[in-house]
Amino acid sequence: PTPPYLKWAESLHSLLDDQEGIQLFRNFLCQEGCADLLDFWFACSGFRKTSQEKRAKLAKAIYRKYIVDGSGIVSRQIKAATKSFIRDCVGRPHPDPAMFEQAQTEIQGMMEENTYPLFLKSDLYLEYT
């Protein structure tokens, strides 16, 4: 069978589908000062599955932690129009489960083009393999 660390090099999704892969990628992102990208990506996935009674509070928590401060790594990578859409949704009593989908897509695109290829060339990954 293919060892997990070779699977991680196939796609970002293969990497994010494996606990050890996530851990190593997160360590790499911590070194680079951008672990929030990964946490935000998982927060968006988790948000979709969250029960309706927790959703409004969770939307505020995600918004406050990653988006409201324009100097944060996540906020800087999300388009202004997407942020303004999220700001409108956060104020609603029953936020849409898909309200973070566009932002998640933008952050994922950034990871696929930038941090994920860097990770595959990093000492951390090469030493692991």
Partner: peptide, 20 residues
């Protein structure tokens, strides 16, 4: 009542793949 941080952590963990 959960704090916002706890809620966020719980949400992130819920989206992670389970141990294989």
């Amino acid at each position: 009542i959960d704090s916002e941080d706890d809620l966020l952590q719980e949400c992130i963990s819920s989206a992670m793949p389970k141990k294989k």
